[in-house]
Design a protein around this nucleic acid. Structure first.
Lengths: 297, 297
DNA sequence: AGAATTGATAATCATGGCTTATCAAATAGA
DNA sequence: TCTATTTGATAAGCCATGATTATCAATTCT
């Protein structure tokens, strides 16, 4: 072991890795450039391999550097998080639970969970962030979230997926539309409509499921618009730019002039699942999972 | 923020937390007891809460101390793991990039990438495997591949799709065919031909795209044969069993008696994309992605 | 009480982190 | 091509601070 690595090294390294420029990085860190250079050199000596290519006036990360950047960021983030958890613990709280969710989980599942959690243990603090499926998985992987609420059927192997809410789908039509909940016969009636859907990148499972609904009805939908916001979709429907198929839960919480026709008789369901990392040691997580299972039962 | 926390603090703290005895811990750490005391005090100041009860001649952990012991151990262990990973990487053994690709990527994209990669970082080892779209996604999912080259427009949510090469399509006709590059008027001339295509299962996107090309020309193709190998397709064309539509790049690398008629004036393009798992931590991956983006620009 | 622990404090030493001054190499501009 | 500028690395010195020794107050044990 050449040199003992300290957090200072990681902090400095991260800034250099970001700036790819020693002088700018040094300025950002409020230290001198030579000081920074020696610290980075120490780090490289401690790891026994170079983290930067310094050839031809250009600084760039080596393969090892790229890898270590991830790890260093992870470590500092984890320490920061431990510190906030400690602060809460010191205040008598049990800790903080960082939750990510899709917009469509805000209608029922998330509020129910939060209320129950508050009731069971008032000393738990929660932070909420609306994120796409993809962003949630990413944030969980990096320990920026403790629990996500997604519409996916598979997650990385070190994560647990737990379905919490099976919803029906509903067709969303403008009030002026001839078809409504009373006279609706079946999806086949809608073969000629323009469809407005959530972007496939936002939720591939939703997209595939909607496709299979139409396929079951014997047609391929003509898609006129895509969006990642339910509100946008409803606005478009309201303005007769097409019809939509969305999880039924979305009918609450918006004040718009559209009709929902619930599709009770089709096989597809909109499944919302909780996800968390199996090895997450946040003390608030286990009671929350317990609670989820109890709410779901 | 009172004090900047360093790894030294964590290292010292862990020993004290284990021994619950400052003098013994100091001895174990080969430092003096007063030095250890001040360091622990600094740590507590940095976290803004006490980690030890020191009343009545007995040292014990506070609740916060218990929690922080876990976290500190985790952090140091994680850093150690990162270091050994890096050491392997330095030996060049972990520096392997496993690439999967469609046959049609072998003409340009893959060779270009490999040459550039070798040039930028000669210590990276690469392994290549020709696989179908589906097989590549599967292998990526199981961590058997680091990067794939596919013709797909969507991939699972934990993967990234990055288009790297937009190619035109070409009609492939036998030399003896009346129509050739010089007198070709448009796709509508080929409405009555038999078509030989790549299997739908091999590449759904290719299949759909060819269908849309014919649709745009006002006909539905009559399909006489399907195959998963370009070579087979060309052989069939050569023997006047039909004509084919394939990515233009395939005209290089085969020695066959067929003519390529490039379809420059249609809207469809054969897009080849790189795919990788977002959370893949192979250190060779990031510089490769960077390289791809630079090559593509 | 006296002896022997305990961890905290005080004063001092010295390692090493940081500074300024400077360099060689590469780049940009005229 | 020549100069001016910018890059990161090096050299020498300062000083902050981690660590040391000496000591203390408090507790426990005999």
């Amino acid at each position: 072991m050449a040199y003992q690595i300290e957090l200072r090294h990681l902090r400095y390294f991260l800034v250099v890795a970001q700036e790819l420029h020693f002088r700018r990085a040094a300025e950002k860190l409020c230290i001198s450039q030579p000081g920074l250079s020696t610290q980075i050199k120490q780090l490289e000596e401690g790891l026994q391999l170079p983290l930067f290519h310094r050839d031809k006036k250009k600084v760039s990360l080596t393969a090892a550097g790229h890898y270590f950047k991830e790890e260093a960021a992870f470590l500092l983030n984890h320490l920061e998080r431990a510190k906030t958890q400690l602060r809460l613990l010191g205040d008598g709280h049990l800790g903080e639970l960082r939750i990510g969710f899709l917009g469509s989980a805000m209608q029922r599942v998330i509020p129910d969970l939060l209320v129950a959690l508050k009731k069971q243990n008032p000393k738990v603090r929660t932070s909420l962030e609306e994120l796409s499926n993809r962003a949630q998985i990413d944030a969980l992987q990096r320990d920026r979230l403790d629990m996500g609420f997604v519409r996916l059927k598979r997650v990385p192997p070190d994560m647990v997926l737990y379905p919490v809410y099976r919803d029906t789908f509903s067709v969303v039509v403008p009030k002026s539309h001839g078809i409504n909940a009373a006279n609706f016969k079946g999806m086949h009636e809608l073969a000629q409509e323009d469809f407005i859907l959530f972007s496939q990148a936002y939720s591939p499972l939703y997209y595939d499921t909607v496709m299979s609904i139409c396929e079951d009805a014997g047609f391929t939908p003509r898609i006129s618009h895509k969006s990642v916001h339910a509100h946008t979709i409803f606005k478009l429907v309201e303005n007769t730019l097409g019809i939509a198929i969305v999880p039924t839960a979305l009918q609450y919480g918006f004040d718009l002039k559209v009709d929902f026709i619930e599709l009770k008789n089709i096989r597809q369901r909109a499944v919302l699942s909780a996800v968390w990392k199996a090895q997450n040691r946040n003390p608030v997580l286990p009671p929350t999972i317990e609670l989820l299972k109890k709410l779901h039962d």
